[in-house]
Design a protein around this nucleic acid. Structure first.
Lengths: 112, 112
DNA sequence: ATTTGATACTATGCGATGCAATGTATATAA
DNA sequence: TTATATACATTGCATCGCATAGTATCAAAT
Protein backbone atom coordinates (compact mmCIF):
# COMPACT_ATOMS: atom_id res chain seq x y z
CA UNK A 1 0.00 0.00 0.00
CA UNK A 2 1.55 3.25 -1.13
CA UNK A 3 1.79 5.77 1.64
CA UNK A 4 0.03 8.59 -0.10
CA UNK A 5 -3.13 6.57 -0.61
CA UNK A 6 -3.78 6.86 3.09
CA UNK A 7 -3.53 10.61 3.24
CA UNK A 8 -6.67 12.27 4.40
CA UNK A 9 -8.27 8.98 5.42
CA UNK A 10 -6.17 8.11 8.44
CA UNK A 11 -8.42 9.93 10.88
CA UNK A 12 -11.39 7.94 9.64
CA UNK A 13 -9.53 4.69 10.20
CA UNK A 14 -8.33 5.58 13.68
CA UNK A 15 -11.69 6.89 14.84
CA UNK A 16 -13.35 3.78 13.42
CA UNK A 17 -11.06 1.47 15.37
CA UNK A 18 -11.64 3.43 18.57
CA UNK A 19 -15.36 3.42 17.94
CA UNK A 20 -15.25 -0.33 18.31
CA UNK A 21 -13.38 -0.25 21.58
CA UNK A 22 -11.19 2.08 23.60
CA UNK A 23 -7.60 1.03 23.04
CA UNK A 24 -3.99 2.07 23.43
CA UNK A 25 -1.83 3.08 20.49
CA UNK A 26 -0.11 -0.21 19.94
CA UNK A 27 -3.43 -2.07 20.02
CA UNK A 28 -4.87 0.40 17.52
CA UNK A 29 -2.14 -0.55 15.09
CA UNK A 30 -2.87 -4.24 15.53
CA UNK A 31 -6.62 -3.85 15.30
CA UNK A 32 -6.22 -1.75 12.19
CA UNK A 33 -4.17 -4.47 10.60
CA UNK A 34 -6.54 -7.23 11.65
CA UNK A 35 -9.84 -5.52 10.85
CA UNK A 36 -8.68 -4.29 7.46
CA UNK A 37 -7.70 -7.77 6.38
CA UNK A 38 -3.96 -7.09 6.73
CA UNK A 39 -4.28 -4.17 4.35
CA UNK A 40 -3.19 -1.45 6.73
CA UNK A 41 0.03 -2.12 8.57
CA UNK A 42 0.90 1.33 9.81
CA UNK A 43 4.19 2.32 11.44
CA UNK A 44 4.21 3.86 14.88
CA UNK A 45 5.57 7.07 13.44
CA UNK A 46 2.29 7.40 11.62
CA UNK A 47 -0.17 6.37 14.29
CA UNK A 48 1.16 7.98 17.46
CA UNK A 49 1.42 11.51 16.08
CA UNK A 50 -2.02 11.08 14.52
CA UNK A 51 -3.51 10.04 17.86
CA UNK A 52 -1.92 13.06 19.50
CA UNK A 53 -3.39 15.28 16.83
CA UNK A 54 -6.84 13.78 17.27
CA UNK A 55 -6.65 14.32 21.00
CA UNK A 56 -5.45 17.89 20.52
CA UNK A 57 -8.51 18.47 18.32
CA UNK A 58 -10.87 17.02 20.89
CA UNK A 59 -11.82 13.93 18.88
CA UNK A 60 -10.46 11.45 21.40
CA UNK A 61 -9.47 11.52 25.08
CA UNK A 62 -6.80 9.50 26.83
CA UNK A 63 -6.05 8.17 30.27
CA UNK A 64 -3.02 6.31 31.57
CA UNK A 65 -3.49 2.70 32.50
CA UNK A 66 -1.06 0.48 34.34
CA UNK A 67 -1.89 -3.17 34.11
CA UNK A 68 0.77 -5.78 34.84
CA UNK A 69 3.32 -3.04 35.33
CA UNK A 70 2.90 -1.82 31.77
CA UNK A 71 2.13 1.81 31.12
CA UNK A 72 -0.41 2.36 28.39
CA UNK A 73 -2.28 5.37 27.19
CA UNK A 74 -5.87 4.34 26.56
CA UNK A 75 -7.77 6.37 23.99
CA UNK A 76 -11.51 6.61 23.51
CA UNK A 77 -13.86 8.66 21.37
CA UNK A 78 -15.33 11.89 22.66
CA UNK A 79 -18.89 12.84 21.62
CA UNK A 80 -17.27 15.23 19.15
CA UNK A 81 -15.17 12.40 17.79
CA UNK A 82 -18.25 10.27 17.35
CA UNK A 83 -19.85 13.02 15.27
CA UNK A 84 -16.68 13.50 13.23
CA UNK A 85 -16.58 9.78 12.55
CA UNK A 86 -20.04 9.93 11.00
CA UNK A 87 -19.04 12.88 8.86
CA UNK A 88 -15.81 11.20 7.74
CA UNK A 89 -17.73 8.04 6.98
CA UNK A 90 -20.16 9.93 4.77
CA UNK A 91 -17.31 11.67 3.04
CA UNK A 92 -15.59 8.37 2.48
CA UNK A 93 -18.63 6.90 0.78
CA UNK A 94 -19.11 9.90 -1.45
CA UNK A 95 -15.41 9.82 -2.31
CA UNK A 96 -15.39 6.10 -3.05
CA UNK A 97 -18.57 6.39 -5.09
CA UNK A 98 -16.99 9.19 -7.10
CA UNK A 99 -13.87 7.19 -7.87
CA UNK A 100 -15.79 4.02 -8.66
CA UNK A 101 -18.19 5.92 -10.86
CA UNK A 102 -15.28 7.36 -12.79
CA UNK A 103 -13.49 4.04 -13.17
CA UNK A 104 -16.69 2.44 -14.41
CA UNK A 105 -17.36 5.20 -16.93
CA UNK A 106 -13.92 5.12 -18.45
CA UNK A 107 -13.78 1.35 -18.39
CA UNK A 108 -10.36 1.13 -16.77
CA UNK A 109 -8.66 -2.24 -17.30
CA UNK A 110 -7.72 -3.23 -13.76
CA UNK A 111 -5.71 -6.37 -13.34
CA UNK A 112 -8.00 -7.54 -10.57
CA UNK B 1 -15.09 17.03 -0.59
CA UNK B 2 -12.21 17.72 1.76
CA UNK B 3 -8.98 18.31 -0.06
CA UNK B 4 -6.93 15.77 1.78
CA UNK B 5 -9.21 12.93 0.79
CA UNK B 6 -7.88 13.24 -2.73
CA UNK B 7 -4.24 12.91 -1.79
CA UNK B 8 -2.55 9.99 -3.37
CA UNK B 9 -5.49 9.25 -5.64
CA UNK B 10 -5.28 12.17 -8.01
CA UNK B 11 -2.96 10.41 -10.42
CA UNK B 12 -5.41 7.54 -10.71
CA UNK B 13 -8.23 9.94 -11.54
CA UNK B 14 -6.26 11.87 -14.14
CA UNK B 15 -4.87 8.78 -15.84
CA UNK B 16 -8.36 7.28 -15.88
CA UNK B 17 -9.82 10.33 -17.60
CA UNK B 18 -7.03 10.33 -20.17
CA UNK B 19 -7.48 6.62 -20.68
CA UNK B 20 -10.94 7.38 -21.99
CA UNK B 21 -9.74 10.02 -24.44
CA UNK B 22 -6.77 12.27 -25.01
CA UNK B 23 -7.70 15.71 -23.73
CA UNK B 24 -6.34 19.08 -22.74
CA UNK B 25 -6.14 20.23 -19.14
CA UNK B 26 -9.32 22.20 -19.01
CA UNK B 27 -11.28 19.36 -20.57
CA UNK B 28 -9.79 16.95 -18.03
CA UNK B 29 -11.25 19.06 -15.26
CA UNK B 30 -14.68 19.02 -16.88
CA UNK B 31 -14.62 15.33 -17.66
CA UNK B 32 -13.54 14.59 -14.14
CA UNK B 33 -16.48 16.53 -12.79
CA UNK B 34 -18.93 14.96 -15.19
CA UNK B 35 -17.76 11.35 -14.98
CA UNK B 36 -17.53 11.38 -11.20
CA UNK B 37 -21.11 12.54 -10.85
CA UNK B 38 -20.12 16.10 -9.90
CA UNK B 39 -18.08 14.72 -7.01
CA UNK B 40 -14.69 16.00 -8.14
CA UNK B 41 -14.58 19.66 -9.06
CA UNK B 42 -10.86 20.30 -9.01
CA UNK B 43 -9.20 23.70 -9.29
CA UNK B 44 -6.69 24.39 -12.02
CA UNK B 45 -3.99 24.83 -9.43
CA UNK B 46 -4.45 21.18 -8.64
CA UNK B 47 -4.81 19.67 -12.08
CA UNK B 48 -2.23 21.51 -14.18
CA UNK B 49 0.74 20.90 -11.89
CA UNK B 50 -0.36 17.28 -11.56
CA UNK B 51 -0.42 16.90 -15.34
CA UNK B 52 3.06 18.40 -15.56
CA UNK B 53 4.26 15.97 -12.94
CA UNK B 54 2.72 13.01 -14.76
CA UNK B 55 4.39 14.12 -17.97
CA UNK B 56 7.71 14.60 -16.20
CA UNK B 57 7.41 11.03 -14.94
CA UNK B 58 6.66 9.67 -18.38
CA UNK B 59 3.05 8.70 -17.65
CA UNK B 60 1.55 11.00 -20.24
CA UNK B 61 2.79 12.90 -23.31
CA UNK B 62 1.58 16.20 -24.66
CA UNK B 63 1.42 18.04 -27.97
CA UNK B 64 0.25 21.54 -28.76
CA UNK B 65 -2.96 21.86 -30.71
CA UNK B 66 -4.33 24.99 -32.31
CA UNK B 67 -7.95 24.69 -33.33
CA UNK B 68 -10.01 27.84 -33.93
CA UNK B 69 -7.07 29.98 -32.88
CA UNK B 70 -7.04 28.43 -29.41
CA UNK B 71 -3.85 26.98 -28.06
CA UNK B 72 -4.31 23.79 -26.16
CA UNK B 73 -1.94 21.22 -24.79
CA UNK B 74 -3.35 17.78 -25.53
CA UNK B 75 -2.33 15.00 -23.18
CA UNK B 76 -2.48 11.29 -23.80
CA UNK B 77 -1.35 8.18 -21.97
CA UNK B 78 2.02 6.63 -22.72
CA UNK B 79 2.41 2.85 -22.55
CA UNK B 80 4.03 3.38 -19.16
CA UNK B 81 1.05 5.44 -18.07
CA UNK B 82 -1.30 2.71 -19.14
CA UNK B 83 0.58 0.24 -16.97
CA UNK B 84 0.63 2.63 -14.04
CA UNK B 85 -3.11 3.09 -14.40
CA UNK B 86 -3.65 -0.62 -13.95
CA UNK B 87 -1.42 -0.66 -10.90
CA UNK B 88 -3.15 2.36 -9.38
CA UNK B 89 -6.49 0.80 -10.11
CA UNK B 90 -5.52 -2.36 -8.28
CA UNK B 91 -4.21 -0.36 -5.39
CA UNK B 92 -7.42 1.62 -5.25
CA UNK B 93 -9.50 -1.52 -4.98
CA UNK B 94 -7.34 -2.97 -2.26
CA UNK B 95 -7.41 0.31 -0.43
CA UNK B 96 -11.19 0.69 -0.74
CA UNK B 97 -11.73 -2.92 0.28
CA UNK B 98 -9.55 -2.36 3.32
CA UNK B 99 -11.48 0.70 4.42
CA UNK B 100 -14.86 -0.87 3.75
CA UNK B 101 -13.84 -4.02 5.55
CA UNK B 102 -12.84 -1.99 8.56
CA UNK B 103 -16.01 0.11 8.57
CA UNK B 104 -18.10 -3.04 8.35
CA UNK B 105 -16.25 -4.76 11.17
CA UNK B 106 -16.53 -1.88 13.59
CA UNK B 107 -20.12 -1.17 12.58
CA UNK B 108 -19.63 2.54 12.05
CA UNK B 109 -22.89 4.50 12.16
CA UNK B 110 -22.73 6.47 8.93
CA UNK B 111 -25.46 8.97 8.30
CA UNK B 112 -25.92 7.71 4.77
C1' DA C 1 -17.34 49.28 -28.96
C1' DT C 2 -16.68 47.58 -24.57
C1' DT C 3 -17.37 44.96 -20.76
C1' DT C 4 -18.10 40.49 -18.95
C1' DG C 5 -17.58 35.61 -18.42
C1' DA C 6 -15.98 31.34 -20.00
C1' DT C 7 -12.04 29.13 -21.81
C1' DA C 8 -7.06 27.84 -21.37
C1' DC C 9 -2.40 27.72 -19.59
C1' DT C 10 1.58 28.73 -16.20
C1' DA C 11 4.15 29.48 -11.89
C1' DT C 12 4.98 30.24 -6.78
C1' DG C 13 4.61 29.11 -2.14
C1' DC C 14 2.00 27.52 2.00
C1' DG C 15 0.04 24.14 5.11
C1' DA C 16 -0.97 19.59 6.17
C1' DT C 17 0.34 14.98 6.46
C1' DG C 18 2.42 10.21 6.34
C1' DC C 19 6.45 8.16 7.75
C1' DA C 20 11.34 7.05 8.15
C1' DA C 21 14.53 7.30 11.72
C1' DT C 22 15.87 7.35 16.30
C1' DG C 23 15.54 6.86 21.16
C1' DT C 24 13.70 5.01 25.69
C1' DA C 25 11.86 1.36 28.60
C1' DT C 26 9.63 -3.06 30.16
C1' DA C 27 8.00 -7.90 29.90
C1' DT C 28 8.79 -12.48 28.20
C1' DA C 29 10.96 -16.25 26.10
C1' DA C 30 15.09 -18.57 24.32
C1' DT D 1 21.62 -12.89 28.97
C1' DT D 2 20.44 -12.11 24.65
C1' DA D 3 16.72 -11.38 21.79
C1' DT D 4 12.04 -10.31 20.66
C1' DA D 5 7.70 -8.28 21.27
C1' DT D 6 5.39 -4.70 23.49
C1' DA D 7 4.67 0.31 24.24
C1' DC D 8 5.45 5.19 23.89
C1' DA D 9 7.56 9.58 22.07
C1' DT D 10 9.90 13.03 18.95
C1' DT D 11 12.21 15.20 14.88
C1' DG D 12 12.50 16.41 10.30
C1' DC D 13 11.89 15.34 5.41
C1' DA D 14 9.31 14.81 1.16
C1' DT D 15 5.14 15.04 -1.01
C1' DC D 16 1.05 16.94 -2.45
C1' DG D 17 -3.34 19.56 -3.06
C1' DC D 18 -4.51 24.06 -3.71
C1' DA D 19 -4.90 29.01 -2.94
C1' DT D 20 -3.25 32.76 -5.36
C1' DA D 21 -1.84 35.46 -9.03
C1' DG D 22 -0.88 36.39 -13.71
C1' DT D 23 -1.47 36.14 -18.97
C1' DA D 24 -4.25 35.60 -23.10
C1' DT D 25 -8.20 34.40 -26.27
C1' DC D 26 -13.01 33.94 -27.69
C1' DA D 27 -18.09 34.67 -27.35
C1' DA D 28 -21.92 37.02 -25.73
C1' DA D 29 -24.07 40.77 -23.59
C1' DT D 30 -24.45 45.67 -22.77
Amino acid sequence: MRGEALKGHLDLLLLAVLHRNPAHGYAVIEELRRLSGETFDLPEGTVYPALHRLERNGMIASRWSEESGRKRRIYELTPQGRKALEVYCDEWHRFADGVNSLLREVNVPCVA
